[in-house]
Computed example of a mutant assay.
Amino acid sequence: MPRTAATTDRTGPAKAPADGDDLNSSAAGRVATVLLAFGDRGTSGALTVSEVARHLGRERSQVSRMLKVLAASGLLEQDQETRAYRLGWRMYHLAGRAGDQRLLALATPALRDLVARTRETALISVLQGNRSFTVARESSMQSVQAGGWVGRTSPLHSCASGRALMLHMSDEDVANLVHGDLQGAGLGPRAPESMRSVIDLIRQERARGFTVAIDELEDGLTSVGAPITSATGETLAAINVSGPTSRLARHVEGIGPQLVLTARHVSARMSVA
């Protein structure tokens, strides 16, 4: 059975990212949480010292010192009029070199081709801890389309990209990754709610080679996914197409095989690049 890049034969799948308490236990962790605050959903692109302190539940003086150091390094910038901070150009430069650039370079034309053929939004996601993390997106020209997903994480069991990332995992590895998210708040009405239903669903999807999530992550959102693998069978990423259920749900059986072929094409290119 193929392995996933985030698993090892000895230790099983990667565990969830360190929680807030773990990050707060070290100076580096505290700095990391400050930077991550600028990408959290529910926050604007620019934050004042007070807003960051409130968002993180920390003392204002401590946060102020860290923000000044990060600004001095160029990772953050401060607006001299509003005194608010935002991510700096040095962070933008670093972000451009993040992740597997070969994967992104090969996947981008594939995303554009999928958008042209399906007229829906196409995305690339990778496994980050116990979440599906979206790293690339090609938008459709439809007036109603899937939202701005880049940088967003989603529970693995309730989205097509997440189950595509787990498609070749053992039942035990799947259970280790998703057990904490079952019956989580804020999911769609059709999200699987038991481990048995997740395992059964993945087995069915494994047999056909692609995953389908209709009203699972969000009510009114449908997505179809397939895994991108290495030459050794490791799952590197998931490619998926997303759109409104009202438009996309009736086409998933036709889009699925196209997505599998696209994923295989990218996988083959990854193997020889």
Rank of each mutant, 00 (worst) to 15 (best):
R190M: 13
V260Q: 08
P192C: 14
A5L: 14
R269F: 01
D219I: 11
G45C: 05
R65D: 06
A207F: 00
T235H: 04
R206V: 05
A175N: 00
L35F: 02
L75E: 12
R10I: 11
S230K: 03
T8F: 04
G254E: 09
A28Q: 14
I255F: 12
E120R: 12
C159P: 02
I228N: 01
T11E: 12
N176G: 08
T33A: 13
L221Q: 03
G151T: 08
R190I: 07
R196W: 09
T235F: 09
R131D: 11
T134I: 12
K68F: 04
S140Q: 11
Q204A: 10
A191Y: 07
V69W: 05
L221C: 01
S44M: 07
V272D: 11
G243A: 09
V212E: 00
R264W: 03
E51V: 10
E234Q: 15
M91N: 05
S230Y: 00
G148M: 04
Q80C: 07
L23S: 11
P257R: 02
T11R: 15
L261A: 15
A110H: 01
S267P: 12
P192W: 06
L70Y: 01
R112M: 09
A191I: 05
P189W: 08
M141Q: 14
G96L: 07
M141H: 15
T108N: 10
S73Q: 08
A95S: 12
T48S: 15
S26T: 15
A231L: 10
L167E: 03
G233R: 09
T229I: 13
T33P: 02
A116D: 12
G42H: 13
E193A: 15
S194R: 11
E51H: 10
G129I: 07
D113E: 13
Y92W: 09
V252T: 08
W89H: 13
L106I: 00
R97Q: 14
S26H: 06
R97T: 14
I202Y: 03
G29N: 11
Q101A: 10
D171N: 03
M195Y: 04
T229W: 02
Q128N: 15
H179R: 14
S44R: 14
H179I: 07
P2A: 15
D22A: 15
T153L: 13
A263K: 03
R247M: 07
A18Q: 11
S197H: 12
P13Q: 08
R54Q: 14
E120C: 07
Y92R: 14
A72L: 11
S246I: 08
A238R: 02
V260H: 00
L248V: 02
V69G: 10
E77V: 13
